[in-house]
């Protein structure tokens, strides 16, 4: 979803004259935030699995299932979502989406409490994560680490607040940040972000207006020549899209940037002096998705 979004944003920026309808903007935010929750849920599951706890993995996937149902309802896909288009979204949401989504949000906070009960206060989990793989703010900035891993080191930088795109400036939410930069803080940031994302979705479905969901963009849409870079905050940090156009139907060059590449680069610094088992914990806590490293 976030790749859809960032590419659409870049193309819109390049075209300059595309007016995205209000309803589409709200739908984009809802989808992006649900996607962030889903991504953090996978991260939560795999992290706990990497630390040897199997049950939280299934808990995380249980809630992710609900989100995937919502996505499936919307765009027909459960994994390779393709919903956000240049000029809006592919189509309107079905009627049962909003009640389903409300139902999910209603129980979600209690589920996050569950996760916290299973892991956050567990002495073994704390022992495995506290003071392990400390990422100092200087190091994080120097390596270009972004997203939750950066905020866990005490740099409160989030594109949703610091370089607002879409309609994020209309919502009331916090950017959780911690200061130790260890695995435990990275864990806490993501857990709190899930709650904040749920808050955003809740506000968005309360306020969503009626109307069009897609501006008219011709199939033979030819943006002006030039280059453009747009960026959004996705679950693993800064997601960027660079488009170089020569005024043709197809761009000359497109580059997508994901957060994992930079997060992988700090690994050698973080694992110094730790045990092999800690490498697993550190890697998990940075939320590195290997395919994203080589985009």
């Amino acid at each position: 979803m976030s790749c859809n979004m960032v590419f659409a944003l870049a193309a819109e920026k390049l075209a300059g004259n595309i007016e995205v309808p209000e309803r589409a903007e709200y739908l984009r935010v809802i989808m992006l935030e649900l996607n962030r929750i889903a991504s953090h849920l996978i991260w939560f599951g795999t992290t706990s699995l990497d630390l040897g706890a199997i049950t939280p993995f299934l808990y995380g996937f249980r809630e992710r299932e609900d989100i995937l149902d919502l996505f499936e309802m919307t765009c027909g896909q459960r994994l390779t979502f393709n919903y956000i288009r240049v000029g809006g979204v592919a189509g309107d949401i079905p009627r049962e989406f909003i009640p389903k989504c409300r139902e999910f949000l209603g129980k979600f906070d209690a589920k996050v409490d569950d996760y916290e009960r299973v892991l956050t206060e567990n002495p073994i989990f704390v022992a495995r994560n506290k003071d392990v793989g400390i990422l100092t703010p200087e190091m994080a900035v120097a390596y270009g680490v972004s997203g939750p891993s950066l905020r866990a080191s005490g740099v409160r930088f989030d594109l949703r607040k610091d370089d607002p795109y879409s309609i994020y400036d209309r919502f009331d939410f916090n950017i959780p940040a911690f200061h130790n930069g260890d695995c435990y803080d990275r864990y806490m940031v993501r857990i709190q972000e899930m709650r904040e994302s749920a808050k955003i979705v809740r506000q968005a479905i309360d306020r969503i207006p009626d109307g069009e969901v897609r501006a008219k963009v011709s199939i033979n849409f030819k943006p002006p020549a030039g280059e453009v870079y747009s960026r959004i905050e996705n679950s693993r940090g800064e997601m960027g899209a660079y488009i170089q156009s020569i005024g043709e139907k197809k761009p000359l060059r497109v580059k997508l940037r994901g957060g994992s590449y930079n997060q992988l680069q700090v690994m050698p610094e973080l694992v110094k002096g730790h045990k092999i088992a800690d490498v697993v914990a550190i890697m998990a806590s940075l939320d590195i998705i290997m395919p994203e490293v080589d985009r």
């Binding site: 706890a53 567990n122 073994i124 022992a127 495995r128």
Partner: peptide, 11 residues
Amino acid sequence: RWTYPRLRVDQ
């Protein structure tokens, strides 16, 4: 078994 994470060797 189905609740706890795993300890590290030294721990």
